[in-house]
Nucleic acid binder design. Structure first.
Lengths: 124, 124
DNA sequence: TTATCTAGTCACTATTGGATACCAAAGCCG
DNA sequence: CGGCTTTGGTATCCAATAGTGACTAGATAA
């Protein structure tokens, strides 16, 4: 029964889900999918990410073969990050999730309000 | 420019992605989708999750309106968790990601090996 | 001399997750 | 009667990780 085992730690889905759940990775992936971007351009686009996290996440995305890093020997060194075919397919798999989020966020928030109101009523 | 703003903290996608990236939430959602399950049945099925995390994640899934909690006043109290329509649609949106993970994990691992080998070669 | 670009490092804090112990209520054993 | 079990939690403490800001570096152009 491999299906039951899918809920143990060495499940491929879990590993990918960890990557996707990463606070920044998907954001970067989706930005880079549209067009190649430079380090500081990403930094400005995301707004809130620290240099450390950006370079860390970029490195891990590159390691996974999802994006490509290309350094250009210009005056101050320029580094361009672009999407790889593998990364593009992952970004595509994330799209349904993004659609779901946009369509259903209101309902989720409503459910949260209902839940909180009920708990408050019980506490009183 | 709302599109640029989508990469700030109040983006709905980000909120949902955080939920999906949760180490256990998706696992529980997919288990409960198949059939209603009791607390300890989930605990045994997932294997590795602590009571604390299980009850914590179940509570947040219930709050989001994704699953329903039903307590039955039996000898030792029985609690059954089942999927809600909203949760079922989310689980459906996660499926492409799971497919991607299963189809592409090998390639990701290969990319990691290539990357590590190259870095080691550079270091030497 | 100061700014720009892409990092890497240090120190600190916030958040996560695990282990452990505890609670209630009922039954069952001796 | 006391102690033990089961179910579904809660509370608390602690270690590990994640994430931040500030600082550094090196090269060069204005």
């Amino acid at each position: 029964m491999k299906a039951a085992n899918a809920y143990s730690a060495d499940c491929p889905t879990r590993q990918i889900l960890d990557r996707v759940g990463d606070k920044w990775a998907v954001l970067i992936l989706l930005l880079v999918r549209d067009k190649p971007m430079r380090f500081n351009a990403l930094r400005r686009a995301i707004e809130g990410i620290s240099q450390k996290m950006l370079s860390q996440v970029l490195k891990s995305l590159e390691r996974d073969g999802l994006i490509r890093r290309r350094a250009i020997a210009t005056v101050p060194v320029t580094v361009e990050y672009s999407i790889m075919p593998l990364g593009a397919t992952l970004a595509g798999a994330v799209d349904p999730l993004r659609d779901w989020a946009e369509r259903n966020l209101k309902e989720v928030l409503a459910a949260q309000r209902r839940y909180d109101a009920q708990r408050k009523a019980l506490a009183a």
